Amino acid sequence: MMKNIVILTVYVIGQLNYSNEASPPLEKRFTEEDICPISETTLEKVDSCPRNNVTIRERSERKNCAKYEPCQGDPLVYHCVRHENYLVEVCAPKEIIIGFCCAEFIKEVGRVQADYSMPCLECPFHYQSNDAWKYRTCTGNAEHNKTFEEATGKFEEATGKFEEATGKDPNISSGNLLVVYIILPAVLMITSILFVVWKVKRAKYPNQKPPSLS
């Protein structure tokens, strides 16, 4: 349960940062010296990512990222991750993904980084970016991508109708609506429940440390 709360919190913060143009997003910041332009030349759209150690080895050998020069001293390694709304194979430096979220390839910097708009229950809190293929939440097949895009489109369409019907400022993004009407209430509700449970356990065990909530 605690992991779910952490994931929700990270997602809310990420959405707030993405939806506020004045606030920088949570992604790792790269300087011009960190940019790896060669990574973009290896970018290849795919229908699916490897599903086991055998296929990851076969596809990484076929991609042969070792033939490329390192980027700022960092060797390029095989990745199968999301880029925009589809899956790609790409040779890029390894990064640490932190925050129970998916990884994505950012073409502008030629690197893989955390995507806080895509929370991942099955992902560990931190993992190597080239291990992103292991988590189906992040690397579903092409049909999953299509479904995701359709769902996103329907949500945006519904948001547009809501704004039109209520005369709401159209400059307020759908991300803001999602945070205000769905995510924040859910976080507050879960936090309140946990607080009540903690108080009950505290009263039940007044002279000792109550059992963990997790």
Rank of each mutant, 00 (worst) to 15 (best):
M1A: 15
M1S: 14
K3G: 07
I5Q: 07
V10L: 09
G14T: 04
S19V: 04
S19A: 11
N20K: 05
E21A: 14
P24A: 12
P24D: 06
E27W: 08
K28L: 14
T31P: 01
D34L: 03
I35R: 04
C36A: 03
P37Y: 02
P37T: 05
I38W: 00
S39A: 10
T41W: 00
K45E: 14
D47M: 06
S48I: 09
C49F: 04
N53D: 12
I56C: 08
I56T: 15
R57Y: 09
R57T: 11
R59L: 15
S60V: 05
E61C: 10
E61K: 15
K63G: 02
K63H: 08
K63R: 13
N64P: 04
Q72K: 12
P75I: 03
V77W: 01
H79Q: 07
H79G: 05
C80V: 10
H83Y: 15
N85K: 12
Y86D: 13
L87H: 04
E89N: 13
C91G: 00
E95N: 12
E95L: 06
F100K: 01
F100D: 05
A103T: 05
E104I: 10
K107S: 05
E108D: 08
V109M: 00
V109K: 00
G110E: 00
R111A: 01
V112D: 00
V112A: 02
D115K: 12
D115G: 05
Y116T: 04
S117R: 13
M118V: 10
P119E: 07
C120P: 03
L121R: 13
F125C: 11
Q128C: 14
S129Y: 01
A132Q: 09
R136F: 13
T139Q: 09
T139S: 08
G140S: 12
G140E: 04
G140T: 07
N141G: 08
N141R: 12
N145C: 14
K146S: 07
K146Q: 11
F148D: 09
F155E: 12
E156I: 15
A158W: 07
K161F: 14
F162I: 15
T166P: 05
P170A: 07
N176H: 11
L178I: 11
Y181G: 04
I183C: 02
L184V: 10
V187A: 09
V187H: 04
L188M: 15
I190K: 06
I190Y: 06
T191F: 07
I193S: 08
L194H: 02
W198Y: 12
P206Y: 05
N207V: 05
K209N: 02
L213A: 09
